Computed example of a mutant assay.
Amino acid sequence: MSSEKFTFRFVVPESAIDGLGHVNNITYLQWCLEAAEAHWLAKTDAELREQYVWVVLNHNISYKNPAFLGEEIEVQTWIHSHKGVRSERCYRIIRIADNKTLVEAKTQWCLLDGTTRKPIIIPQKVADLFV
């Protein structure tokens, strides 16, 4: 049931570097969240975004290799599955120069009604945008 990958690339900025000289672990998580938001924005219109909002239930992240200042990075994300009010989104962050995987991650998201902020079963019209 996986969706097509949504990707974006950028160069690692100085603000992402920690005291050990590589990208800070929390920065990878931020990049995952930014990718999820960008994917949602790319697939939906303003009306749909007012109707529904997503909240994180949990994150699972595995750090495979470090990234460094000035390296070109690609963040990939896709919907792995969904059921009821939940959706599992996967991420892979790679270094372009050698195609090494830096991070693999998954996030469990819950869909909320945009007005009541209560969980709502993922409607088919939303699922169809991603699968």
Score class of each variant (00 low, 15 high):
residue 25 N to F: 06
residue 26 I to L: 13
residue 26 I to F: 08
residue 29 L to P: 06
residue 29 L to R: 11
residue 31 W to V: 00
residue 31 W to L: 05
residue 31 W to P: 02
residue 31 W to T: 01
residue 31 W to Q: 01
residue 32 C to Q: 09
residue 32 C to F: 09
residue 33 L to N: 13
residue 34 E to A: 12
residue 34 E to I: 09
residue 34 E to R: 10
residue 37 E to K: 10
residue 37 E to F: 10
residue 38 A to V: 01
residue 38 A to R: 04
residue 39 H to W: 00
residue 40 W to N: 01
residue 40 W to D: 01
residue 41 L to I: 03
residue 41 L to Y: 03
residue 41 L to R: 03
residue 41 L to D: 04
residue 42 A to P: 04
residue 42 A to L: 02
residue 43 K to N: 02
residue 43 K to C: 04
residue 44 T to G: 07
residue 46 A to V: 07
residue 46 A to Q: 12
residue 48 L to G: 01
residue 49 R to L: 02
residue 49 R to Q: 11
residue 50 E to P: 09
residue 50 E to L: 14
residue 51 Q to G: 06
residue 51 Q to W: 02
residue 53 V to R: 15
residue 54 W to S: 14
residue 56 V to S: 15
residue 56 V to N: 15
residue 57 L to G: 15
residue 58 N to C: 09
residue 61 I to Q: 05
residue 62 S to W: 13
residue 62 S to Y: 14
residue 62 S to P: 11
residue 63 Y to Q: 12
residue 63 Y to G: 10
residue 63 Y to H: 15
residue 63 Y to S: 14
residue 63 Y to L: 13
residue 66 P to K: 03
residue 68 F to N: 07
residue 68 F to A: 01
residue 69 L to G: 06
residue 69 L to D: 07
residue 70 G to H: 06
residue 72 E to G: 01
residue 74 E to Q: 13
residue 74 E to Y: 02
residue 74 E to V: 08
residue 75 V to L: 01
residue 76 Q to I: 05
residue 77 T to R: 03
residue 79 I to W: 02
residue 79 I to R: 02
residue 81 S to P: 13
residue 81 S to A: 15
residue 82 H to I: 06
residue 85 V to R: 10
residue 85 V to G: 02
residue 86 R to I: 10
residue 86 R to C: 11
residue 86 R to A: 12
residue 87 S to W: 02
residue 87 S to D: 05
residue 87 S to H: 07
residue 87 S to P: 04
residue 89 R to C: 03
residue 89 R to L: 05
residue 91 Y to T: 06
residue 92 R to F: 08
residue 93 I to N: 07
residue 93 I to W: 07
residue 94 I to K: 04
residue 94 I to Y: 00
residue 95 R to D: 08
residue 95 R to T: 08
residue 96 I to G: 06
residue 97 A to G: 11
residue 98 D to T: 14
residue 99 N to Y: 05
residue 100 K to L: 14
residue 100 K to A: 14
residue 101 T to P: 08
